[in-house]
Design a protein around this nucleic acid. Structure first.
Lengths: 128, 128
DNA sequence: TGAACATATGAACAGTAATTCATATGTTCA
DNA sequence: TGAACATATGAATTACTGTTCATATGTTCA
Protein backbone atom coordinates (compact mmCIF):
# COMPACT_ATOMS: atom_id res chain seq x y z
CA UNK A 1 0.00 0.00 0.00
CA UNK A 2 1.18 3.43 -0.91
CA UNK A 3 -0.21 6.27 1.15
CA UNK A 4 0.87 9.78 1.94
CA UNK A 5 1.54 10.96 5.46
CA UNK A 6 -2.09 11.94 6.02
CA UNK A 7 -3.29 8.54 4.85
CA UNK A 8 -5.41 10.41 2.32
CA UNK A 9 -5.37 10.63 -1.45
CA UNK A 10 -3.91 13.88 -2.78
CA UNK A 11 -4.40 13.08 -6.45
CA UNK A 12 -5.73 16.03 -8.46
CA UNK A 13 -7.14 14.08 -11.33
CA UNK A 14 -9.32 11.73 -9.33
CA UNK A 15 -11.02 13.57 -6.46
CA UNK A 16 -13.26 10.61 -5.82
CA UNK A 17 -10.31 8.82 -4.27
CA UNK A 18 -10.68 11.07 -1.28
CA UNK A 19 -13.69 8.95 -0.49
CA UNK A 20 -12.66 5.51 -1.76
CA UNK A 21 -9.36 5.71 0.09
CA UNK A 22 -7.49 4.55 -2.98
CA UNK A 23 -3.82 4.96 -3.47
CA UNK A 24 -2.29 8.08 -4.87
CA UNK A 25 -2.37 7.40 -8.57
CA UNK A 26 0.38 9.85 -9.42
CA UNK A 27 2.74 8.18 -6.99
CA UNK A 28 1.85 4.76 -8.30
CA UNK A 29 2.27 5.92 -11.84
CA UNK A 30 5.79 7.14 -11.12
CA UNK A 31 6.67 3.97 -9.26
CA UNK A 32 5.32 1.45 -11.73
CA UNK A 33 6.94 3.25 -14.65
CA UNK A 34 10.29 2.44 -13.09
CA UNK A 35 9.34 -1.23 -12.96
CA UNK A 36 8.42 -1.65 -16.62
CA UNK A 37 8.08 0.67 -19.58
CA UNK A 38 5.14 0.78 -21.95
CA UNK A 39 7.33 -0.75 -24.65
CA UNK A 40 8.54 -3.56 -22.40
CA UNK A 41 4.98 -4.36 -21.35
CA UNK A 42 4.06 -4.69 -25.00
CA UNK A 43 6.94 -7.07 -25.76
CA UNK A 44 6.15 -9.15 -22.69
CA UNK A 45 2.53 -9.47 -23.79
CA UNK A 46 3.69 -10.47 -27.28
CA UNK A 47 6.01 -13.08 -25.80
CA UNK A 48 3.30 -14.72 -23.76
CA UNK A 49 0.85 -14.38 -26.64
CA UNK A 50 3.07 -16.72 -28.61
CA UNK A 51 2.63 -19.37 -25.90
CA UNK A 52 -1.09 -18.70 -25.53
CA UNK A 53 -2.28 -20.97 -28.32
CA UNK A 54 -2.93 -24.66 -27.69
CA UNK A 55 -1.29 -25.78 -30.92
CA UNK A 56 1.85 -23.76 -30.24
CA UNK A 57 2.06 -25.05 -26.67
CA UNK A 58 1.82 -28.60 -27.96
CA UNK A 59 4.55 -27.87 -30.50
CA UNK A 60 6.83 -26.43 -27.82
CA UNK A 61 6.36 -29.28 -25.37
CA UNK A 62 6.88 -31.77 -28.18
CA UNK A 63 10.16 -30.08 -29.04
CA UNK A 64 11.26 -30.46 -25.42
CA UNK A 65 11.47 -34.16 -26.26
CA UNK A 66 13.94 -33.44 -29.04
CA UNK A 67 14.31 -31.70 -32.40
CA UNK A 68 11.73 -32.43 -35.06
CA UNK A 69 11.16 -31.63 -38.70
CA UNK A 70 8.02 -29.78 -39.77
CA UNK A 71 6.17 -32.76 -41.20
CA UNK A 72 6.67 -34.77 -38.02
CA UNK A 73 5.39 -31.91 -35.89
CA UNK A 74 2.39 -31.58 -38.18
CA UNK A 75 1.49 -35.24 -37.76
CA UNK A 76 2.15 -35.20 -34.02
CA UNK A 77 -0.11 -32.26 -33.27
CA UNK A 78 -2.66 -33.15 -35.94
CA UNK A 79 -2.54 -29.93 -37.92
CA UNK A 80 -1.83 -29.25 -41.58
CA UNK A 81 1.78 -28.80 -42.67
CA UNK A 82 0.80 -25.28 -43.63
CA UNK A 83 -0.75 -24.64 -40.25
CA UNK A 84 2.34 -25.82 -38.38
CA UNK A 85 4.52 -23.68 -40.59
CA UNK A 86 2.46 -20.61 -39.77
CA UNK A 87 2.68 -21.30 -36.05
CA UNK A 88 6.40 -22.03 -36.22
CA UNK A 89 6.85 -18.61 -37.73
CA UNK A 90 5.18 -17.08 -34.66
CA UNK A 91 7.41 -19.10 -32.33
CA UNK A 92 10.46 -18.16 -34.37
CA UNK A 93 9.67 -14.45 -34.25
CA UNK A 94 9.24 -14.67 -30.48
CA UNK A 95 12.66 -16.25 -30.19
CA UNK A 96 11.22 -19.41 -28.65
CA UNK A 97 12.51 -21.85 -31.26
CA UNK A 98 15.49 -22.06 -33.59
CA UNK A 99 15.96 -24.18 -36.68
CA UNK A 100 18.53 -25.77 -38.90
CA UNK A 101 18.29 -27.24 -42.36
CA UNK A 102 19.27 -30.84 -42.98
CA UNK A 103 18.86 -31.67 -46.63
CA UNK A 104 15.25 -31.17 -47.65
CA UNK A 105 14.00 -31.06 -44.08
CA UNK A 106 14.17 -28.26 -41.54
CA UNK A 107 14.55 -29.24 -37.92
CA UNK A 108 13.11 -27.04 -35.21
CA UNK A 109 14.21 -27.04 -31.60
CA UNK A 110 13.72 -25.07 -28.38
CA UNK A 111 15.78 -21.87 -28.56
CA UNK A 112 17.45 -22.14 -25.16
CA UNK A 113 17.09 -23.37 -21.59
CA UNK A 114 15.43 -20.10 -20.72
CA UNK A 115 12.44 -21.05 -22.84
CA UNK A 116 12.32 -24.49 -21.27
CA UNK A 117 12.25 -22.83 -17.86
CA UNK A 118 9.33 -20.59 -18.80
CA UNK A 119 7.40 -23.64 -20.00
CA UNK A 120 8.25 -25.54 -16.84
CA UNK A 121 7.10 -22.60 -14.70
CA UNK A 122 3.81 -22.56 -16.55
CA UNK A 123 3.33 -26.26 -16.03
CA UNK A 124 4.19 -25.87 -12.38
CA UNK A 125 1.70 -23.03 -11.92
CA UNK A 126 -1.27 -24.96 -13.30
CA UNK A 127 -0.38 -27.94 -11.10
CA UNK A 128 -1.13 -25.99 -7.93
CA UNK B 1 16.89 -37.00 -32.33
CA UNK B 2 14.96 -40.17 -31.81
CA UNK B 3 15.78 -42.98 -34.18
CA UNK B 4 15.33 -46.70 -34.18
CA UNK B 5 18.24 -49.12 -34.38
CA UNK B 6 18.23 -49.10 -38.17
CA UNK B 7 18.29 -45.31 -38.25
CA UNK B 8 15.22 -45.52 -40.43
CA UNK B 9 11.61 -44.51 -39.93
CA UNK B 10 9.29 -47.45 -39.33
CA UNK B 11 6.13 -45.41 -38.99
CA UNK B 12 3.17 -46.96 -40.82
CA UNK B 13 1.08 -43.85 -41.16
CA UNK B 14 3.70 -41.67 -42.77
CA UNK B 15 5.71 -43.60 -45.35
CA UNK B 16 7.18 -40.41 -46.72
CA UNK B 17 9.38 -40.20 -43.65
CA UNK B 18 11.44 -43.00 -45.10
CA UNK B 19 12.69 -40.39 -47.49
CA UNK B 20 12.75 -37.26 -45.35
CA UNK B 21 14.57 -39.05 -42.57
CA UNK B 22 12.12 -37.72 -40.01
CA UNK B 23 11.77 -39.14 -36.58
CA UNK B 24 9.49 -42.03 -35.82
CA UNK B 25 6.25 -40.27 -35.11
CA UNK B 26 4.79 -43.11 -33.08
CA UNK B 27 7.79 -43.14 -30.78
CA UNK B 28 7.71 -39.38 -30.43
CA UNK B 29 4.00 -39.47 -29.74
CA UNK B 30 4.52 -41.91 -26.89
CA UNK B 31 7.45 -39.96 -25.48
CA UNK B 32 5.94 -36.52 -25.61
CA UNK B 33 2.71 -37.72 -24.08
CA UNK B 34 4.69 -38.56 -20.97
CA UNK B 35 6.00 -35.02 -20.86
CA UNK B 36 2.65 -33.24 -20.97
CA UNK B 37 -0.93 -34.38 -21.41
CA UNK B 38 -3.44 -32.83 -23.76
CA UNK B 39 -5.29 -31.39 -20.80
CA UNK B 40 -2.15 -29.91 -19.28
CA UNK B 41 -1.20 -28.33 -22.59
CA UNK B 42 -4.60 -26.69 -22.69
CA UNK B 43 -4.28 -25.26 -19.18
CA UNK B 44 -0.78 -24.02 -19.91
CA UNK B 45 -2.02 -22.23 -23.01
CA UNK B 46 -4.87 -20.71 -20.99
CA UNK B 47 -2.43 -19.55 -18.33
CA UNK B 48 -0.20 -17.75 -20.80
CA UNK B 49 -3.22 -16.44 -22.68
CA UNK B 50 -4.12 -14.51 -19.57
CA UNK B 51 -0.74 -12.74 -19.73
CA UNK B 52 -0.93 -12.22 -23.49
CA UNK B 53 -2.88 -8.98 -23.46
CA UNK B 54 -1.13 -5.62 -23.10
CA UNK B 55 -3.68 -4.25 -20.65
CA UNK B 56 -3.45 -7.29 -18.41
CA UNK B 57 0.35 -7.21 -18.48
CA UNK B 58 0.27 -3.57 -17.45
CA UNK B 59 -2.14 -4.41 -14.64
CA UNK B 60 0.10 -7.22 -13.39
CA UNK B 61 3.29 -5.19 -13.44
CA UNK B 62 1.50 -2.32 -11.75
CA UNK B 63 0.39 -4.67 -8.99
CA UNK B 64 4.01 -5.72 -8.50
CA UNK B 65 4.43 -2.22 -7.07
CA UNK B 66 1.76 -2.90 -4.46
CA UNK B 67 -1.92 -3.63 -4.01
CA UNK B 68 -4.41 -1.40 -5.76
CA UNK B 69 -8.15 -0.92 -5.89
CA UNK B 70 -10.01 -1.23 -9.19
CA UNK B 71 -10.56 2.46 -9.79
CA UNK B 72 -6.85 3.22 -9.30
CA UNK B 73 -5.88 0.45 -11.71
CA UNK B 74 -8.37 1.81 -14.22
CA UNK B 75 -6.88 5.28 -14.08
CA UNK B 76 -3.32 3.96 -14.16
CA UNK B 77 -3.74 1.85 -17.27
CA UNK B 78 -6.18 4.23 -18.93
CA UNK B 79 -9.07 1.85 -19.38
CA UNK B 80 -12.68 2.04 -18.24
CA UNK B 81 -13.56 0.74 -14.78
CA UNK B 82 -15.66 -1.84 -16.53
CA UNK B 83 -12.82 -2.84 -18.79
CA UNK B 84 -10.44 -3.33 -15.90
CA UNK B 85 -13.03 -5.35 -14.04
CA UNK B 86 -13.41 -7.68 -17.01
CA UNK B 87 -9.67 -8.15 -17.28
CA UNK B 88 -9.27 -8.68 -13.54
CA UNK B 89 -11.78 -11.48 -13.82
CA UNK B 90 -9.53 -13.17 -16.38
CA UNK B 91 -6.50 -12.75 -14.14
CA UNK B 92 -8.47 -14.02 -11.16
CA UNK B 93 -9.62 -17.15 -13.00
CA UNK B 94 -6.03 -17.86 -14.02
CA UNK B 95 -4.96 -17.63 -10.39
CA UNK B 96 -2.62 -14.74 -11.12
CA UNK B 97 -4.19 -12.23 -8.74
CA UNK B 98 -6.05 -12.36 -5.46
CA UNK B 99 -8.26 -9.75 -3.86
CA UNK B 100 -9.66 -8.54 -0.59
CA UNK B 101 -12.48 -6.17 0.22
CA UNK B 102 -11.83 -3.08 2.29
CA UNK B 103 -15.04 -1.18 2.79
CA UNK B 104 -16.45 -0.19 -0.57
CA UNK B 105 -13.21 -0.86 -2.40
CA UNK B 106 -11.69 -4.13 -3.50
CA UNK B 107 -7.93 -4.38 -3.50
CA UNK B 108 -6.18 -6.64 -5.97
CA UNK B 109 -2.69 -8.03 -5.59
CA UNK B 110 -0.32 -10.54 -7.21
CA UNK B 111 -1.36 -14.06 -6.17
CA UNK B 112 2.07 -15.31 -5.11
CA UNK B 113 5.80 -15.10 -5.74
CA UNK B 114 5.43 -17.75 -8.40
CA UNK B 115 3.49 -15.31 -10.57
CA UNK B 116 6.08 -12.61 -9.98
CA UNK B 117 8.75 -15.06 -11.14
CA UNK B 118 6.90 -15.84 -14.37
CA UNK B 119 6.59 -12.13 -15.09
CA UNK B 120 10.27 -11.60 -14.32
CA UNK B 121 11.23 -14.47 -16.63
CA UNK B 122 9.19 -12.91 -19.40
CA UNK B 123 10.85 -9.55 -18.89
CA UNK B 124 14.23 -11.24 -18.87
CA UNK B 125 13.53 -13.12 -22.10
CA UNK B 126 12.61 -10.00 -24.09
CA UNK B 127 15.74 -8.26 -22.82
CA UNK B 128 18.04 -10.66 -24.65
C1' DT C 1 -33.87 2.71 4.88
C1' DG C 2 -32.04 5.24 0.99
C1' DA C 3 -28.47 7.98 -1.16
C1' DA C 4 -23.68 7.78 -2.77
C1' DC C 5 -20.02 5.18 -4.12
C1' DA C 6 -17.19 0.90 -5.87
C1' DT C 7 -17.23 -3.07 -8.45
C1' DA C 8 -19.27 -6.72 -11.46
C1' DT C 9 -21.92 -8.30 -15.35
C1' DG C 10 -24.32 -8.59 -19.98
C1' DA C 11 -24.80 -7.16 -24.71
C1' DA C 12 -22.90 -5.32 -28.84
C1' DC C 13 -19.30 -3.88 -31.82
C1' DA C 14 -14.68 -3.91 -33.79
C1' DG C 15 -10.34 -5.81 -34.34
C1' DT C 16 -7.49 -9.89 -34.37
C1' DA C 17 -5.97 -14.60 -34.84
C1' DA C 18 -6.05 -19.65 -36.24
C1' DT C 19 -7.03 -22.69 -39.74
C1' DT C 20 -7.22 -24.46 -44.46
C1' DC C 21 -6.52 -24.36 -49.51
C1' DA C 22 -3.77 -23.19 -53.27
C1' DT C 23 0.61 -22.10 -54.64
C1' DA C 24 5.47 -20.48 -54.44
C1' DT C 25 10.24 -21.22 -52.88
C1' DG C 26 13.99 -24.14 -52.07
C1' DT C 27 16.57 -28.72 -51.88
C1' DT C 28 18.07 -33.33 -53.55
C1' DC C 29 19.19 -36.72 -56.79
C1' DA C 30 18.82 -39.33 -61.09
C1' DT D 1 18.01 -29.90 -65.83
C1' DG D 2 13.68 -31.59 -64.13
C1' DA D 3 11.03 -34.55 -61.14
C1' DA D 4 9.95 -35.44 -56.28
C1' DC D 5 9.85 -33.85 -51.85
C1' DA D 6 9.82 -30.39 -47.71
C1' DT D 7 8.71 -26.03 -46.19
C1' DA D 8 6.94 -21.18 -46.56
C1' DT D 9 3.60 -17.77 -47.92
C1' DG D 10 -0.84 -15.38 -49.33
C1' DA D 11 -5.76 -15.14 -49.36
C1' DA D 12 -10.14 -16.20 -47.39
C1' DT D 13 -13.08 -17.87 -43.87
C1' DT D 14 -14.43 -18.61 -39.23
C1' DA D 15 -14.07 -17.96 -34.47
C1' DC D 16 -12.53 -15.49 -30.66
C1' DT D 17 -11.23 -11.51 -27.74
C1' DG D 18 -11.02 -6.71 -25.88
C1' DT D 19 -13.42 -2.65 -25.30
C1' DT D 20 -17.29 0.30 -24.13
C1' DC D 21 -22.05 1.42 -22.67
C1' DA D 22 -25.75 0.51 -19.74
C1' DT D 23 -27.08 -1.55 -15.73
C1' DA D 24 -27.05 -4.70 -11.69
C1' DT D 25 -24.97 -6.03 -7.26
C1' DG D 26 -23.00 -4.90 -3.02
C1' DT D 27 -21.15 -1.72 0.70
C1' DT D 28 -21.14 2.41 3.77
C1' DC D 29 -23.09 5.99 6.41
C1' DA D 30 -26.34 9.68 7.55
Amino acid sequence: MIENKNDECVCESCPHHLECGGKNVELVKRLSSTIISEEEAYYVSELFKSISDLTRVRILFSLLGGDMCVCDIAELVGVTQSGVSHQLRVLKQAGLVKYRREGKSIYYSIADDHVATILAMGLEHISE
